[in-house]
């Protein structure tokens, strides 16, 4: 079982690598070669978004999928954000549990001060103060949850940098939940199935007793689709998804032009999700 699933995940990664017809990810192929051919990490020198870092941090080479969330598109359109969340939770059979204690969420809304406690201060602009910010797994370049996991049930996919989960290996110790500085992980405190109204047969359900979180839609990427939340915002440019290590990718261009912030950069995890505030 485990091997099969691992193989599947690897295959999904490889498909992304091959750039099989994924319109958004066309450039991925090129980068893989670029970073394989040249010395490690030449692209990062041009990485000008890292305003928070006093000195350039070393980053991993190879494809590293990331996301830019343009909050300017969400400030006046919270419904768009709701659609993105609904699309994600529908695609991944995320149960809808009302009780805060047991809730499971992959991408959700929170306040600016909650999302960015390190950037928080008491003189915020009105749009920042009053808007909902989407938060999700940051698919860190240096994930503390992966270090914590005693069974490698959560791991970085080498092909694309996604922090992935093996629901069949997870023993439910919840060490990763304690280790994540973003509160991105949820635990199945009970059988989730009664709380799933529409079941998507394309994505596996989970048992109780395992941890789960956003997977950057690895399964959709394998089929050449964009992540569900990105697709839900199609045409608005609210969420840009792509390879952070490819200087030619759309996301790299956005990051080059706009000033962005990351959640809790001081934790040293090097998140792959950026926000234009």
């Amino acid at each position: 079982m485990n091997n099969k699933r691992r193989k599947f995940l690897k295959m999904a990664g490889a498909t992304v690598l091959a750039g099989m017809g994924a319109p958004v990810l066309v450039k991925l192929h090129g980068t893989a070669q670029a970073s394989a051919d040249s010395e490690p990490a030449p692209a990062h020198a041009a990485d000008s978004h890292g305003g928070g870092h006093g000195h350039g941090e070393e980053q991993n080479a190879g494809i590293r999928l990331g996301m830019v969330i343009d909050m300017r598109k969400f400030y006046d359109d919270e419904a768009l954000l709701d659609e993105a969340i609904a699309a994600c939770h529908l695609a991944h059979n995320v149960p809808d549990i009302d009780e805060r204690k047991s809730e499971i969420k992959w991408i959700w809304k929170t306040g600016y001060g909650n999302a960015f406690p390190d950037h928080s201060h008491n003189r915020r602009s009105g749009s920042v103060e009053n808007s909902a910010f989407p938060v999700l797994c940051n698919h860190c370049d240096n994930p503390s949850c992966v270090k914590a996991c005693p069974t490698k049930a959560t791991f970085v996919m080498e092909k694309n940098g996604i922090v992935s989960m093996d629901y069949h290996r997870c023993i439910g110790c919840r060490f990763c939940m304690a280790a994540c500085p973003y509160g991105a992980r949820s635990f199945n405190w009970q059988d989730p199935r009664p709380f799933i109204t529409v079941y998507n047969p394309e994505f596996p359900g989970r048992n109780r007793g395992v941890v789960e979180k956003c997977n950057f839609c690895s399964e959709r990427l394998g089929k050449g689709l964009e992540p569900a939340c990105v697709e839900a915002c199609a045409g608005t440019g609210a969420i840009v998804f792509g390879d952070l290590n490819d200087p030619e990718s759309e996301i790299s261009k956005v990051l080059h032009e706009e000033f962005t912030i990351q959640r809790r950069p001081a934790a040293g995890t090097r998140p792959s999700v950026f926000y234009i505030v």
Partner: peptide
């Protein structure tokens, strides 16, 4: 007692 999947404990 704390493991969500005690039967998988040997995975460690």
């Amino acid at each position: 007692a704390d493991l969500g999947q005690p039967l998988r404990g040997l995975n460690v």
